[in-house]
């Protein structure tokens, strides 16, 4: 019950201060050239761990066998296998993973912006419901798109092939990545805006060069 009496007096003061800060913040979202954080190395050479989990190693071996050096196995941990793949092959790898390894849905699609490498990484976390031996497993499929300094979402080189025809479940996730990072998914049937306001005309907000106010 702490709301009690202080409120009425506070009204006026708050109103005034809020007004001014509102006007001040309308112009706040300029892309401030911010010192990029010391970078995570792009493709760090993975020192081969001594003892790899057997089952997970089997999965990664199957993929390596099929695609050879088009892909790169970033790590094999317990329950998690991560594959880095170029954007030309991501569609093929996804199809192979679905048809041969019986992964059947994408849990999450995340974008990670690496301004130092001039690349935006898109990470698919793929899981399986239909194969109970894979229930614990998550296959991490990462690919990278070229990053533009001055993005024009949809009309620049930041493009990736869509996986929507392989995994139906990426539909909304890829729409989200498009508005948050400006990565256009070629072949996606519905590349509209999803979460941001209709009149958003700024940089895609999750890019690293989009600075939030006061930071």
């Amino acid at each position: 019950m702490h709301a009690a009496s202080g409120e009425d007096q506070e009204d006026e003061g708050q109103e005034v201060c809020m007004m001014s800060s509102d006007t001040a913040t309308t112009a706040e979202k300029k892309p401030v050239a911010k010192a990029p954080p010391p970078k995570p190395a792009a493709k760090k050479p993975e020192p081969e761990p001594v003892e790899l989990p057997v089952f997970e190693k089997g999965i990664s071996d199957k993929i390596v066998e099929k695609f050879g050096d088009k892909i790169e196995v970033a790590f094999v941990k317990e329950d998690r296998v991560r594959i880095n793949v170029g954007k030309e092959d991501v569609h093929d790898v996804a199809e192979f993973v679905r048809d041969e390894l019986s992964y059947d849905h994408v849990e999450s699609v995340s974008g990670v912006d690496y301004p130092q490498d001039n690349e935006i990484e898109v990470v698919y976390h793929i899981g399986s419901y239909s194969d109970s031996s894979l229930a614990r497993q998550v296959l991490v499929l990462a690919t990278r798109a070229q990053r533009e300094t001055n993005p024009i979402p949809g009309n620049d080189a930041t493009k990736l092939p869509t996986l929507r025809d392989v995994f139906y479940s990426v539909e909304f996730h890829e729409r989200e990545i498009f508005e948050m990072f400006g990565v256009f998914f070629e072949g996606h049937p519905d590349n509209r805006r999803l979460l941001l306001p209709e009149d958003w005309a700024d940089l895609p907000p999750l890019r690293k060069d989009f600075a939030i106010k006061g930071r």
Partner: peptide, 27 residues
């Protein structure tokens, strides 16, 4: 005031710029 989201890019810093407020209930 915007509360926890004072520095978020998509949140208004309080609604009193949009509609007049009679009572504030903090928490």
């Amino acid at each position: 005031t915007g509360g926890l989201y004072f520095d978020s890019y998509n949140v208004l810093p309080g609604i009193d710029g949009v509609i007049p407020v009679d009572v504030y209930v903090p928490g």
